[in-house]
């Protein structure tokens, strides 16, 4: 997109080092980790409450290329929690509104904007050019579709959800033979009616869950620490307690299980 801000090409290597210096000094990141982030392509599906936070932290951390997918436009009721958008951008496509904020945060990040819902085929094609897919959507059928595309393309899926005062994060990594998929967890459920317009959601919860998703993306890309594969992290914000459950791969899973002969 055209703008007058500095571009990746116009920034010197020194400026890039300075921008990311506070994370490069972490031994788990170092120059090598930063280079991995700068080379990475991450798809963020849903630029609502979670996607706002995920996209801003990933852009500021220097992910090379972000692909933003959301068919919706910014509405007044979004602004209480969808902090990548602003009042004057009501009516704009969310991906376009987000792009303005992300470019202001870090003009060196390359953005691809997809202001429509993707079919499973479309997402499979898109996922093939990405390193990680981040699910920030708000409904079960899209979450199932994203999961199927990630299993088929063997792309790690960083999944987050938040409603009311409750949050949940996990990572499903089809590259690992023992990793469960999203279908192993929720596959037997039918559609869950859980719009924020019906249930309500407390704003900073999106920050906690979205930040956790962004952190897991950085860990996956740099190899830092221990990931969330095989665990679902649950947050009860009213009690302010995190706990995790172990999620084993379901060998009978219709999406990721071994097909029967």
């Amino acid at each position: 997109m055209p703008h007058d801000l500095p571009t990746a090409d116009s920034l010197s290597a020194d400026e890039e080092l300075l921008r990311y210096s506070r994370q490069i000094m972490l031994p788990q990141i170092d120059i090598k980790g930063q280079q991995a982030l700068l080379k990475a392509t991450v798809i963020i599906i849903g630029l609502g409450g979670l996607g706002s936070v995920v996209s801003m932290y990933l852009a500021s951390s220097g992910i090379g290329r972000l692909i933003l997918v959301d068919p919706d436009q910014v509405e007044l009721t979004n602004l209480q929690r969808q902090i990548v958008h602003t009042t004057e951008r009501i009516g704009m496509f969310k991906v376009e509104s987000a792009a303005i904020q992300l470019t202001a945060l870090n003009p060196t990040v390359e953005l691809e904007l997809i202001p429509r819902a993707l079919s499973e085929e479309g997402l499979i094609q898109l996922a093939q050019q990405a390193d990680i897919v981040v699910d920030c959507t708000d409904n079960l059928s899209t979450r199932f579709l994203i999961n199927r595309a990630c299993v088929q393309t063997q792309k790690p899926l960083v999944s987050g959800a938040a409603i009311r005062w409750e949050g949940q994060v996990s990572v499903f990594d089809s590259r690992k033979p023992d990793s469960p998929c999203y279908h192993c967890f929720y596959g037997e459920l039918t559609e869950v009616e859980q719009a924020c317009s019906v249930n309500g959601v407390i704003s900073p919860l999106l920050g906690m869950i979205g930040s956790t998703q962004a952190l897991e993306v950085i860990k996956l890309l740099t190899g830092a620490g221990k990931g969330l594969v095989g665990r679902v992290l649950l947050l009860d914000a009213l009690a302010m307690e995190w706990h995790s459950i172990v999620l084993p791969k379901n060998p009978q899973c219709r999406v990721c299980g071994v097909p029967h002969a």
Binding site: T137, Q194, N199
Partner: peptide, 10 residues
Amino acid sequence: IEVLSPNVGG
């Protein structure tokens, strides 16, 4: 036993 209500909000 822990019964969890599903969370799919975004």
